[in-house]
């Protein structure tokens, strides 16, 4: 057999003749719509900011606020016991 695509190989030729399969039109439309929405989100002027917010800013804000609340709570308890 030759794997050189210029010389004919009966098995590869027969494989090339297999009928094309396609996803049904309704699902194809949904996939396209979903992907285009994702593409548009990336094109937004704010896309970079939102990516930064999702990856770093939001976790940092949640962690800092949690820490601040715990610090306040511990201080409040100490204050109550102290008084």
């Amino acid at each position: 057999m030759s794997t050189d695509q210029n010389s004919p190989d009966p098995v590869l030729q027969a494989l090339a003749q297999l009928p094309e399969q396609d996803v049904d039109p309704w699902r194809a439309g949904r996939i396209r719509h979903h992907a285009l929405s994702t593409l548009a989100q990336g094109a937004s002027r704010w896309a970079g900011f939102f990516r930064f917010y999702d990856r770093f800013l939001e976790p940092a804000l949640v962690a800092s606020l949690t820490l601040a609340y715990l610090t306040w709570a511990v201080a409040a308890v100490n204050h109550l016991h102290g008084s």
Binding site: E20, Q21, D22, V23, I31, R32, L36, L39, A43
Partner: peptide
């Protein structure tokens, strides 16, 4: 450049072939 037309072209060119590949 994030062009929807380019995406549509790619989608039209390769959707069925990719689906056939994945299906098989």
């Amino acid at each position: 450049r994030g062009e929807a037309t380019a995406f549509d072209r790619a989608y039209t060119m390769y959707r069925a072939r990719l689906f056939g590949f994945l299906l098989r």
